[in-house]
Amino acid sequence: MYTLCHNHEVIDAARLEPPPPAVACRGLQKRYGDVVAVAGLDLEVRRGECFGLLGPNGAGKTTTIEILEGLLAPDAGEVEVLGLRWGRHARALRQRLGIQLQETQLSEKLTVEETIRLFRSFYRRGPSVDEVIQLVELESKRGSRVGKLSGGQRQRLSVACALVNQPEVLFLDEPTTGLDPQSRRHFWDVLRAFRSRGGTVLLTTHYMDEAQSVCDRVGIVDQGRIIALDTPEALVRGLGEAGKTLEDVFVALTGRHLRDD
């Protein structure tokens, strides 16, 4: 009897222990020759939240997110996704993640349905191909070649490919760039549905209104470092002036000069 009770307590204790964060990294560094793309970056994305990485062009967002996705090796620093590390657990981890890259061009000769089928075949569980097509509302384009899709439709297809396994963590690098307002709103709906099932999202965007309305917390990256991190409301409040938006925070923190050169 006593042992049984004791066992119960152990199990309860294990249950009470908080699950590891969805994504965590410490001291991340990456350089390309003379260019320091990421300069010691710490980040923690909690389970179930939608976290936005904001920052000017060349700030290091894509580099950071690709390191977190296990596609790039950092020069220094540690990464844990769902409590696991890249390397030994890579295959198992990939089953549980959804990834959209900033600049992938899917095969132009394949149709929408064939592309989704291909990606679905790599995963052991998830919605059916039809369900994914419905989810991103590409039913009418099911048989169209990818090469014949509009930019916005391609973007939706690329999000669909990231959702084929009902991932626990979804990484999206500029998912709404080039979308019209309708498609953007539709994308937010897809995101909301995904999160209502407990999914975690880490995304980058250049649209401040989008970050403000879909992200629980945002981190502003500049020159490879996080220079501000909080809820959008708290960041705006921090400016101390009425009627300001996240865009004002962004400009106040990162300056007005161009960052492309």
Partner: peptide, 26 residues
């Protein structure tokens, strides 16, 4: 039976994809 949501084994899907790309290139 693995759940692939209606898709075939990855080797088959990858092969089909390659064949389609080829045949659609006159």
């Amino acid at each position: 039976m693995t759940d692939r949501g209606g898709a075939f084994h990855p080797v088959i899907e990858l092969t089909l994809a390659r064949l389609r790309e080829f045949l659609r290139e006159p």
